[in-house]
C-alpha cells in the first residue's frame, strides 16, 4: 500500500525506487504518491537521499530498481513525456557567464520549444511572478542568492509544468527571501501545481506542505501531515495543570481516567502524559472544575517538530 498525499489521482508516484552507488544505498525502497495540487515536503539530513530521489523523478538518474511515474508516464521508459510536465530546480543552480537574467530565461524558453509571441509573453509572466522584472538586464553571475533563487524558480516554471520538483530551495536564504519563496510556492500550489520540495530543516517546510515525508539513509521513515506524524510518533501529549492547593486530589482524579498516564505531582503542578484528543482534553478540564478543584492553568504541549524529527530518525543517526 503506497502512502498517498492529498486526494484524487496521484500525479507523482514512486514505486519501490532503489538507487545504489556501489555499496551506498542512496535510495532504498521508497514509495509514495502525491495527488494533484498537493505540496509534499521531503525532509531528511544531508546524505539521506533526497537529491538522488528527486533526480530520479526529474529523469536525470535511473533507478537501480523500481519506477517513478509522473502524470502517468514512467521516468524510465518515457523520460521526454515526463520532462514536458515537470519543472526541476536542483540544489545547485547552474549559471552561464556573459548572460543576463532575461537572456538566461529566454534561452530556457527556447529550449523548451516556446516560439514567437508565446515565448515573449511567457517570459514576461515569469519575470513578473518571480518579482525579477527589475533585474532582467542584470548579469546572472553576481546576483544575490535570493535573486538567483527567483531566476531558477522562474526557469523551472518557463514551460508551465504541472509538477514542480524543488531541491532545497530555501537553503541559505535570509528570512525575508524565505518568506517570499513561501508565498510563491503557496501561489503555485493554489494554481493547482503538484509540488515536491525538500529541506533538511523541518520547520522550513511545515507551513507550506500538505504532508511531509521523513527520509533517512535512503528510507522513508514516516509520511503524513505534520500532525499525523506527531500523532503516530507521540501518542502522549504532555498536559501540565496548575491546581491551587489541590494537586494531589487532581492527580487522583486523573488517575481514574485511562487516557492519563505517568502522573506526577510537583507542588501545585500536575503533569501527565495524555493520549486523548482535544475533546477529551476539554473533558478533563470539566471533570476537575466540576469536582470543585481550582484549576488555574492548563497547558498541553506537543513535542516540537524538531523533537519529532529527532525521535523519528533516532537510532539511525549516529
Amino acid at each position: 500500500m503506497i502512502p498517498t498525499v492529498g486526494e484524487g489521482e496521484a500525479v507523482i508516484e514512486l514505486r519501490r525506487v532503489h538507487r545504489f552507488f556501489g555499496k551506498t544505498r542512496a535510495v532504498d525502497d521508497i514509495s509514495f504518491a502525491v495527488a494533484r495540487g498537493s505540496v509534499f515536503g521531503y525532509i531528511g539530513p544531508n546524505g539521506a537521499g533526497k537529491t538522488t530521489s528527486m533526480r530520479i523523478l526529474a529523469t536525470l538518474e535511473l533507478p537501480s530498481y523500481g519506477d517513478a511515474i509522473v502524470d502517468g508516464f514512467s521516468v524510465v521508459n518515457d523520460p521526454e513525456m515526463v520532462r514536458k510536465r515537470l519543472g526541476f530546480m536542483p540544489d545547485a543552480f547552474g549559471t552561464y557567464a556573459n548572460v543576463n537574467c532575461a537572456e538566461y530565461l529566454d534561452f530556457f524558453a527556447r529550449s523548451y520549444g516556446l516560439v514567437g509571441r508565446e515565448r515573449t509573453q511567457r517570459l514576461k509572466r515569469v519575470l513578473e511572478f518571480t518579482g525579477a522584472a527589475g533585474i532582467a538586464e542584470k548579469p546572472i553571475r553576481g546576483l544575490s542568492k535570493g535573486m538567483k533563487q527567483r531566476i531558477c524558480l522562474g526557469r523551472a516554471l518557463m514551460h508551465d509544468p504541472a509538477v514542480l520538483i524543488l531541491d532545497e530551495p530555501a537553503a541559505g536564504l535570509d528570512p525575508r527571501a524565505r518568506i517570499e519563496l513561501r508565498k510563491m510556492i503557496g501561489a503555485l500550489a493554489a494554481e493547482g501545481k503538484t509540488i515536491l520540495i525538500s529541506s533538511h530543516i523541518l520547520t522550513e517546510l511545515a507551513e507550506m506542505c500538505d504532508a511531509v515525508g521523513i527520509i533517512e539513509q535512503g528510507r522513508l521513515l514516516a509520511t503524513g501531515s505534520v500532525e499525523e506524524i506527531q500523532r503516530q510518533r507521540q501518542q502522549h501529549r504532555e498536559l501540565t495543570l496548575r491546581v491551587m492547593h489541590g494537586a494531589a486530589e487532581a492527580a487522583e482524579r486523573l488517575g481514574q481516567r485511562d487516557d492519563c498516564l505517568e502522573i506526577r505531582v510537583e507542588g501545585d503542578w500536575v503533569r501527565t502524559a495524555f493520549s486523548g484528543d482535544l475533546a477529551a482534553q476539554a473533558d478533563v478540564l470539566r471533570d476537575l472544575v466540576e469536582a470543585g478543584l481550582p484549576v488555574a492553568e492548563l497547558t498541553a504541549r506537543t513535542k516540537s517538530l524538531e523533537d519529532v524529527f529527532l525521535q523519528v530518525t533516532e537510532g539511525l543517526v549516529q
Binding site: 536525470l60 526541476f88 529550449s111
Partner: peptide, 16 residues
C-alpha cells in the same frame, strides 16, 4: 563546463 556547473542537467530536462 556545462557538465561541471550542472547546467547540462538543466538542459537535459528541456525539450532539447
Amino acid at each position: 563546463a556545462e557538465v561541471d556547473d550542472g547546467t547540462l542537467d538543466l538542459l537535459s530536462v528541456t525539450n532539447l
